[in-house]
């Protein structure tokens, strides 16, 4: 299953809508996309996971790198529309301490700007 990303850019903020599966074969693609956003100055990133169907440890690694990169740049990432499984996954991995999860996208965009 392909991974499709929709990028919406709002000056410092970027919204990334993930559609499909994140796995080993496309984790590099996702990582490169995040790197591109960061290099373009989008230090505050909202990940919209409403259409994300699966994620393996490669995806978690990319998320952890993104957390590290955004924190270093004074930014932040917030997830929205995360399923319970995804929330559990973040909890198990400990990433929930570094990634805020909100229910709606508007709330996520407010959180990420604060």
């Amino acid at each position: 299953m392909a991974l499709e990303l929709v990028l919406e850019e709002y000056h410092e903020l970027a919204v990334v809508i993930l559609e499909g599966c994140v796995r080993a074969s496309n984790a590099g693609f996702l990582q490169n996309t995040f790197n591109m956003l960061l290099s373009e100055g989008h230090a505050r990133i909202v990940l919209d996971c409403r259409a994300l169907s699966s994620m393996n440890s490669d995806g978690l690694a990319v998320l952890s790198d993104l957390v590290r990169a955004t924190s270093a740049g004074g930014g932040k990432i917030v997830l929205c529309h995360a399923s319970k499984n995804l929330v559990d996954l973040l909890d198990i991995s400990g990433l929930d301490q570094f990634i805020e999860v909100t229910s709606g996208r508007a709330e996520a965009m407010r959180q990420v700007m604060h």
Binding site: S54, S57, D58, A61, L86
Partner: peptide
């Protein structure tokens, strides 16, 4: 061509499936 260069080696080598829908 994209690579896993930016993904830590441990995750590339051990992509155990966990988490969401299967």
């Amino acid at each position: 061509s994209v690579s896993h260069n930016n993904v830590p080696e441990n995750y590339v080598n051990h992509p155990h499936k966990i988490g969401l829908s299967k």
